[in-house]
Design a protein around this nucleic acid. Structure first.
Lengths: 211, 211
DNA sequence: CCACTTTTCGACCCATGGGTAAGTTTGTCA
DNA sequence: TGACAAACTTACCCATGGGTCGAAAAGTGG
């Protein structure tokens, strides 16, 4: 007779200790991000997260300084997924604004649908302590700038057109940031379909008059 | 020597008691909505709200059952501002989908920029107790339906066109619900300008191929 | 199998903040 | 001006949940 609950370890021990530590940290973060997203940051207690990992609350403190740091790391990872992508965005010299915009939207949607991205968008940055908040805001601003820059390029190279770059970019971010509130990956629509629809929608909104 | 703090009553006594009561209730709600919006529901304590009104915490309990009820009333008022507007929306027989869409967007933006609307959009409905949550969700769904119905009419009468009504409506709501996070009425752009920009943006996104 | 480190946990502390009880002030109306 | 209700306050209760402490497991290397 084997053990009823096979202990279902939360980080299989194959690596050495440092790797193991880092791995478990990641698992905590993913779980926290998912829970924060679903229930909200303040509705989520550390015990909730701990239980989901079959672990006690103090264990979390072995991996993180406090609740805020966990949230902060989630935000950081989400932002990095866009700003420090494996393959860098094509530069303005390499591609038209239209092409670059499509690529940007694709990346951003992918981010926003992921646990960390959803967490970033659902939980306001005001939950963070001032110091960390600064970094997150800086990161978001950086992403903002990416889109604005593309729209401006579009104005110049004629592949895009919109009356007001700042405002238009905000509308686009709004449309995307709202996705986690209604889209569920297990539903009828696949992520690719969603992305295509978003791209089509945005492209029409910022397309030049006759193209 | 007059009193330094002239007591700055929070509901000037001119009406009779019932009116006075109702008036103060409204003042509490507005203040709460503003604070919830700015700081977030969980970051706002009842003492915060009370202090802003130069009143003690228990006074709030004289006007409301509890913290949730205050939030709920804010949400209710916001939703009603759209569903029970003074002048009803023109029906599908009275106007083209295009015209109706513009009117709808105008109303929704106006709502979302208001204290209650901002509160509705910024604080998730998950903060509410199950019972009230139901009513809020029902209200939001009703508003959802309004927009979807218009988009469908547009498909029929040819004044609008989009590949997927459900998804497109979500993008539009996203763009609008995100407004409170970046738009500030005291900034460079007036509310009317903002509304015009939004309408222009959406119209292009859901315009028929050649119009 | 023994020291020594890493990882985990049970038990506790305590500030915060929603909510209440009971009394005091304020207004109203005979 | 006295009785009665409305409006408001001070002082308190107490569950919740973030965070800590010290000790016990569990793994590691000699």
């Amino acid at each position: 007779m084997v053990k009823a609950t096979p202990k279902r370890a939360w980080g299989e021990a194959i690596q050495n200790r440092d790797e193991q530590f880092e791995l478990k940290r990641q698992v905590v973060l993913r779980t926290a991000a998912r829970t924060y997203s679903r229930r909200g940051f303040y509705e989520t207690t550390l015990v909730d997260i701990a239980e989901e990992l079959n672990v006690s609350k103090p264990t979390l403190y072995y991996y993180f300084k406090n609740k805020d740091e966990i949230l902060f790391e989630c935000h950081r990872l989400a932002i990095e997924a866009v700003t420090n992508h494996d393959t860098p965005m094509p530069s303005a010299e390499e591609a038209t604004a239209r092409v670059r915009l499509e690529e940007f939207l694709r990346r951003y949607v992918r981010m926003v649908v992921d646990d960390f991205g959803t967490c970033l968008v659902m939980t306001g940055a005001n939950a963070l302590e001032p110091e960390n908040r600064g970094e997150v805001i800086r990161g978001r601003r950086q992403i903002d700038t990416m889109l604005r820059e593309i729209l401006e390029q579009g104005l110049a190279d004629g592949t895009l057109d919109c009356p007001d770059v700042k405002v238009s970019s905000m509308f686009v971010f709004g449309a995307m940031n709202w996705i986690p509130r209604w889209y569920h990956a297990d539903g009828a629509m696949s992520l690719d379909e969603l992305t295509d629809r978003l791209i089509a929608f945005v492209m029409r909104a910022v397309a030049p008059p006759r193209a």
